[in-house]
């Protein structure tokens, strides 16, 4: 088992939650989302994100609208749909539970 592989799997698992999280605070277009994710070192290359966004959009979690751009072609502005919002809230709870669980397991010494 390669450590890189495991890391990538972990990142991938929370990637959807992170995207929903970014869009929860404000609408954004793809480049914004990418920039934020890159900053947080959650993704390395942009290409990965486009299939993911399309999939979330097709699943009804995201909506988008076109906006003119000063540089280049018009951009897709993504926002959360109602379903996406409740989905995000649910994921948030799960995430917090998971975080707590991981914290308990990894910090409390196991009694023998």
């Amino acid at each position: 088992m390669k450590i890189d592989n495991t890391k990538a799997q972990m990142r991938k698992g929370i990637l959807e939650y992170c995207i929903l999280g970014i869009l929860d605070s404000s609408d954004a277009y793809a480049s914004d989302i990418i920039a934020k994710l890159k900053e947080a070192k959650l993704i390395v290359v942009e290409g990965t994100l486009y299939p993911l966004l399309t999939r979330l959009k097709n699943a009804g979690l995201l909506e988008y609208r076109w906006e003119e751009s000063t540089s280049g072609p018009p951009r897709k502005y993504y926002s959360l749909s109602d379903t996406g919002r409740s989905f995000q809230a649910e994921l948030k709870m799960t995430w917090e539970e998971l975080q707590e669980a991981v914290k308990i397991i990894t910090t409390t010494p196991t009694e023998s």
Partner: peptide
């Protein structure tokens, strides 16, 4: 989407 992004980058 990717083509649009490439256009933007170019």
């Amino acid at each position: 989407d990717i083509e649009a992004r490439i256009a933007e980058l170019f």
